[in-house]
Amino acid sequence: MTTETSQRADAGMAAFVSTTSRWGRITMTTALLLSLAGPVHLVAFTGVEVGGAQIWIAFAAVAATFGVIWVLEPLTYYPILGPAAMYQAFMIGNISNKLLPAAIVAQDSVNAAPGTRRGDLAAVMAICGAAVVHLTSLLVFVGLLGNWLLSILPAELIEVARLYILPAVLGAVLVQCVATMRRPRPTVIAVVAALLIQFALIPVLPGLAMYATALCVATTMALSWFLRDRRPPGEALQEGDTDPVPSDPHTQPAKEGR
């Protein structure tokens, strides 16, 4: 493409990032304050007996478990989500079982590679779509009908959903992720790294279980880079950024970088 269009794209993307960052921070700060206001009201203004010391002890116990994850998780998902979607994802929650899958499906659907501008935009739009479905279904099925559903759904069904939601979502998502990326080397590296961490490393050092995902992400990123296919030079990888979209992505299995 010409330098002029490239400059316009740069400026446009810069405006997009600055708008989404500003509003992302405003809305996230609002949600942060509101989410704390509820329990603070409960402790301060109702009859419950909770002391400051008790809260600190409980907070310390939770921090001992999740403290590292608070920092690691944003670091882990940033390369996948990009700056704009970070503010969406950590407010909507359910990142790995819902938002990332939605982003992958959408990137595949419009043939945009992750990490490119089109990929970032596809992810943002997908998360918007997922947010609308998610918020609406929560408001209707949990907010309005929740207690009624609780009374009519068989207890066993609810128990099964609670126990097995993660494996039920993740098996399919892993397959979808592999099929979308079409990058054999990083795929093999990722699966082997995960198996080694789970079945060789964690039995020896059980304390690492909490950090397994972050460890696997770091290992896969590093090895995918050092063991990359060096035949096609870098420019082949950047094409996804600017290429016009093929009208039908399904008829052409080959993607950039192969």
Partner: peptide, 10 residues
């Protein structure tokens, strides 16, 4: 890509 594949594999 590496991050995504690593996260879901693990």
């Amino acid at each position: 890509c590496g991050a995504l594949l690593g996260a879901f594999s693990m």
